[in-house]
Design a protein around this nucleic acid. Sequence first.
DNA 1: GTGGTCTAGACCACG
DNA 2: GTGGTCTAGACCACC
Lengths: 124, 124, 124, 124
Amino acid sequence: MILLDYRDKRPIYEQVQEKLERLITSGALEADVKMPSVRSLAIELSVNPNTVQRAYTQLEQEGYIYTVSGKGSFVAPAAEWQESKQRQILEEWCELTVRVMETGITKERLMQQMEDIYKEADND
Amino acid sequence: MILLDYRDKRPIYEQVQEKLERLITSGALEADVKMPSVRSLAIELSVNPNTVQRAYTQLEQEGYIYTVSGKGSFVAPAAEWQESKQRQILEEWCELTVRVMETGITKERLMQQMEDIYKEADND
Amino acid sequence: MILLDYRDKRPIYEQVQEKLERLITSGALEADVKMPSVRSLAIELSVNPNTVQRAYTQLEQEGYIYTVSGKGSFVAPAAEWQESKQRQILEEWCELTVRVMETGITKERLMQQMEDIYKEADND
Amino acid sequence: MILLDYRDKRPIYEQVQEKLERLITSGALEADVKMPSVRSLAIELSVNPNTVQRAYTQLEQEGYIYTVSGKGSFVAPAAEWQESKQRQILEEWCELTVRVMETGITKERLMQQMEDIYKEADND
DNA sequence: GTGGTCTAGACCACG
DNA sequence: GTGGTCTAGACCACC
């Protein structure tokens, strides 16, 4: 389910966090579904439970999951994070697009790329 | 000219490198223009000369500047880095665009944003 | 294991880098074997850890080793560097061969030398 | 006659020395021909006379030229340097060939390259 | 004055 | 314990 890259320079907990976040924001994990327990995920990934715990803590702080004492962690409803996530990533996207433009890539070229990306997604 | 963010997780030398790289790739610094000397930039930014040196070394390895020992460092002609830079940043852009799409932002919304970005640049 | 030549004009970090690179490309160090830690090698060579660090950083940038933060550095699989290494060294070899030829050494003489080199390697 | 590369990391005097040495060892400059004066070559190359002087001094020490007070410098007869030069460059060539072999390039591949190099030289 | 290298010693994040 | 970053201060070659 999650593949770790130990040669990646980012810390392990950040990779775990990012993969889980993507599974949630892309809709692969639906609202109120139970997340795997810290311990079981740690075993599955062969990492220290502290590492998984840290990822979960971050996800909770950012509103992607919520924890029920003694029950476990659950995926938060999209309503709680979707808007801020969209605002954040859109801002990031605009900044990157400006930089792309500065390197001399034309609007037409980008439009074409974007068409391809959305078309490929439709086929899946 | 360059503002450092000490709260940023990224190392200082990388921030310096990235800012200078952007000044070069955006055309703000023209080919064969002399870069500030390692020492003077270090003083201006209140960092150790070694830190600036490291940024310069990286920029040289990636082809954005060239060094004439005893004279200083100079901006490399665009021909030497433009193509690889465009390929690199376009790849980055595509990955980010996929993630944007996954959060449910429509193609039309992105198209509009892109129009705005390119239009604003034309007015400058 | 590694001998430094302080009379050599080349910097120390480059000597270290070159020796390690040769150990790797010649197959003496196999893929995924752990390299000595920065600190231990620094002590062994009686140089500053920063110097060894620099050699390792370069080796990583050129794809000969990979680093797992907190664990150490490891030899990268040959598949990742062999092709580019062969291209690089073959180019170097051709240039040198041209210069050898210019000094008046005959093709037959070189052929003989080459036979000897490959024959000696077979006996090992 | 000589093209300097200011972006080369080697010092200027070394580039001048190396180019002149090649002109001599390849036979382009014949024995007892007068070398350009330090001053005139310095002007031609737009460099400091000290730089040219240093190159000449080195060339003299290594036996490629000789100086007659008040007359200038002259190309030394091949007899004085050819043997040691051939020995030196052949040794260098053998070491490099060993390294080439270690990277897994076959003898046949090198033979082919060598044929090409000598054939191309014959056509000139 | 310029870039380049090196040392000594410190601090941090990571797992 | 590991790699990574940073500072302070020194020395060198080059032109």
